[in-house]
Nucleic acid binder design. Structure first.
Lengths: 234, 234
DNA sequence: TCAATAGTGTCTGTTAGACATTATGGA
DNA sequence: TCCATAATGTCTAACAGACACTATTGA
């Protein structure tokens, strides 16, 4: 599928725009979440990075623009999870846009690294120099991932098609930022009918090989329980 | 504080704009959530309604614009809860804007009704004729309220400063769309240390008078429990 | 007095968290 | 063999949901 000649990685110096669309692409690497950043085209700023962004084209929706951006950046389109929000504070954006709309995309671990000279994955919680609004969009994406984690099956979008339960638990631990109890994790997973075992096993290093599972949601769990005033005091 | 002469209720016919800011104001009325709508200025459309909206002014942030809109619409500023998101699909908006950013504001029950001839509260789940994008923003606001209900103390923003526990439970039931168990609700509320009793009592109709409480969060609940894969299969 | 609503005590099934144990491979 | 990891069984404290009961007012 032919795309425009100028990819985000080699975009020309900043132009004026009233509204930009930015995508935050996340993938796990080791025990960290990493995000894809592009070196700023502006030669005046040294070692300045930004999110892949573009402006809307005629007849395009916001989602169209974000999907096109993700495709142009990573080749095959990653799973676009949704919109983070609009960022229109006084913090600057490389495009000069008054307002930027950020989207979140999740890339499975082990996907082909698209790293050219101007594109690289950085730890999402310790990004390099970013314009203030870009930093706000990245932080918003991380918050959105954690918020939606217990409501949508987004952890599975960060894993390959088959995975071990330890891998799945590690993803949850990365996203939640805390360790989970193995037995409880597997018990809750079993009760939710979200995965099914394959007949493959994988041996990594020393210990006993782990069975591979695939994401296969069967049904939603029975009745809701009552109101939990969990973090409500925040 | 002087405001612009043309309030949203009497705004001139639609002008072209590239980006609009809309506010969804919600308040409980009876056992329903209601939203504030403004009659469309466009004389061609008969009985067409829209959300209060405006465009950003120079040096204004998105939040500034939303707060100004809420103030101009309701007098004293209601509690603006946050942004719903950007809506830039092909669905039309009264402003003709390519993209609209929606904000959510919660108005305590019993607040002065600002109803002029061109402004009225409508049941949020059965609005009158709305442009498609406006309908999408309203639906997004309702979804956001339910999503954030167990994470943020938004139920209290729909109540006056003092309230009975039955009122509070009714708000939760309206927002969740289901009935709650009285004893469990109060037990969870007590454990969360979110309200404190006043020494006032209120008698409404027949039964025993109810004690009035006020919102007074003390601390957050102790340890989190593990992962709950609640609605995760969705 | 009855009806209606507020508020509380207690029982039970479920579950999160902890601990222990077995299983299975590599060094 | 020892060690590391996978996977599972069991116990306990906490909690949601249900029921029953008392308390207090107006009709």
């Amino acid at each position: 599928m032919p795309d425009r000649p100028s990819t985000p990685a080699t975009r020309p110096p900043p132009r004026r725009a009233s509204l930009s669309v930015d995508v935050v692409l996340l993938t796990p690497l080791g025990r960290r979440l990493t995000t894809l950043l592009v070196r700023t085209g502006d030669p005046r700023a040294k070692e300045r990075w930004e999110l892949p962004w573009d402006t809307m084209r005629a007849e395009e929706t916001l989602e169209d623009t974000a999907a096109r951006l993700a495709r142009a950046t990573l080749g095959a389109g990653p799973a676009l999870i949704g919109q983070i929000g609009a960022f229109g504070n006084r913090r600057r954006h490389p495009s000069g846009a008054a307002v930027s709309v950020a989207f979140l995309g999740l890339v499975p671990a082990g996907a082909p690294a698209p790293v050219g000279g101007d594109t690289a994955w950085f730890p999402a919680d310790e990004p390099p120099g970013l314009a203030p609004r870009v930093r706000a969009m990245l932080d918003g994406a991380l918050a959105a991932v954690r918020t939606r984690l217990d409501r949508e099956p987004i952890a599975f979008r960060l894993l390959p098609a088959t995975f071990t339960l330890s891998q799945l638990q590690e993803i949850y631990e990365i996203l939640l930022g805390r360790r989970l109890h193995k037995a409880s994790f597997r018990r809750a997973l079993h009760a939710a009918w979200l995965v099914e075992p394959t007949d493959e096993w994988r041996s990594e290093g020393r210990g006993r090989p782990a069975q591979l599972f695939r994401y296969a949601p069967r049904k939603r769990r029975g009745g809701r329980r009552g109101v939990r005033f969990d973090v409500l005091g925040g």
